[in-house]
Amino acid sequence: MDATAGPAPARAAQGERHRLVYRHSVATRLTHWIATLAFFVLVMSGLQIFNAAPYLDASDKSDPGRRVVDIGFTTNPSGNPAGYLRIFGFQIPTGHALGFTDDGLGSETGRAFPGWITLPGYQDLADGRRWHLFFAWIAVIAGLAYIVAGARRRDLALIVLRPSDLPKLVPMQLYYLRLRREPPAYGKYNPLQKLAYTLVLFVFAPLVVLSGLALSPGIDALAGPLTTLLGGRQFARLWHFAAMVGLIGFFFVHVTLVLSTGVVNNLRSMITGSYELGKHEGLGP
């Protein structure tokens, strides 16, 4: 059982000012930072790989008629190239940010994602794949180790969103928006944290892994129903990309909250494990 969930309310009742708890186990902290590194490498090398075929189709084989996302560029009458991003047929001009952009070597070229966000910076599908396929293993191993360690310490049970948390989601959001004075009672994690972590651990992460595997012709031959279930190989590429967008969305929300809710305390808890509970934390289920 976690230290924060049990005795914390009693200590709070005693009016203790500094409620320092051991919040994250070594396994949690280690896998967190390994997964962070892997996440950066996988996103950057993934965008490098995407650049080789900068479009996503909701189909098995490539089919321009079912194109959902497309990044490219057009050259205007005066001869200047300008990028575009097309989503569901809506064309968004992207100038020199996407489509015609930084080639990673100090110049510009026709290329979906710019060199500053790809790995390697210059266009090189072979090396992008090398990074991606190595760190995919790292991410999966770290993810499984996190789940197993969390399940053994019963931490995982505290992070999963439960039906009883659902009515607390809106009050918690109102509290974050300062439209409500007190948050609803919660334990180690508040209901919105549970929602975010549950989505990442049990929706986005499995989806990103399974859709990635479905892209492999070798795995498709071994486990055909997987690719079919995802709508085919090109659709699996679309799922893979969508899950990445979900994970990037989580990343920004996560970092914003880490920074805005006591950055030193938050970072310390993920480095040494030690965390000082806020006045509302650890009081409820």
Partner: peptide, 28 residues
Amino acid sequence: IAGCAGISNKLNDNPTIHKIIGSAQGLD
């Protein structure tokens, strides 16, 4: 921004790193 690509390129061009990340192939 160019610096960012520069770091990525340097990491990618490092022969030791290149060898390590290539090791996934045997496992696959």
